[in-house]
Amino acid sequence: MSALLLRDLRLAFRAGGGFGLGLAFFLIVTVMVPFSVGPNSATLAVIAPGVLWLGALLACLLSLDRLLALDWEDGSLDLLATAPLPLEAVLSVKSLAHWLTTGLPLVLAAPVLGVLLNLPAGGYLWITLSLLIGTPALSVIGTFGAALTVGLKRGGLLLSLLVMPLYVPTLIFGAEAARRGAAGMAVETPLLMLGGITLGAIALLPFASAAVLRVNLR
């Protein structure tokens, strides 16, 4: 399993692996926001937590179609499915690799981009913490979506359509925690709910993803 994780990380960092693209996208989206809503710092401060969460979510979404599609195209997914690793474990590891290469950089970049959006001083801790707790769920749910659409041509758009509704609870609790934190309110409840969703998704969704992938491989 560590071999698979190592391989996926290595592939992401090699040329053409796409590492950093999600991060760059996150940056671009955040920069575009003031252009669209105006430079008023009071307005930006209010919407900053939501924009950062939405930006992170979209950046995550964009990188999902590479998650399994590359292994599908070159045939290594078939070989992995016949390897001694259970498919559930393969998919969990791939989710983890996706989170390490996409989710974690977003978490680290969010406070920096918060400066651009005039995020209130109290909000930095909570935006980082809520993203740290919430982005693993985005990767795991995204893996399910990627497994659903892996054999399809033009699966990318469909993938977004399928995954977005599944992201709703994560986005609501995550952004709510960040918003409350920025406004100096209590954040325990949304953070706990967010953590619950993440843990539940990590524990259960790989089984659904593996079931779906088996159907797609046959």
Binding site: R7, R10, L11, R14, A15, G16, G17, D74, G75, S76, D78, L79, T82, P84
Partner: peptide, 16 residues
């Protein structure tokens, strides 16, 4: 657990 499968596709990672 006896079986190793080699498909039509090579299943190689080109950047490795």
């Amino acid at each position: 657990d006896d079986i190793a499968y080699a498909a039509h596709a090579d299943g190689l990672k080109l950047t490795l």
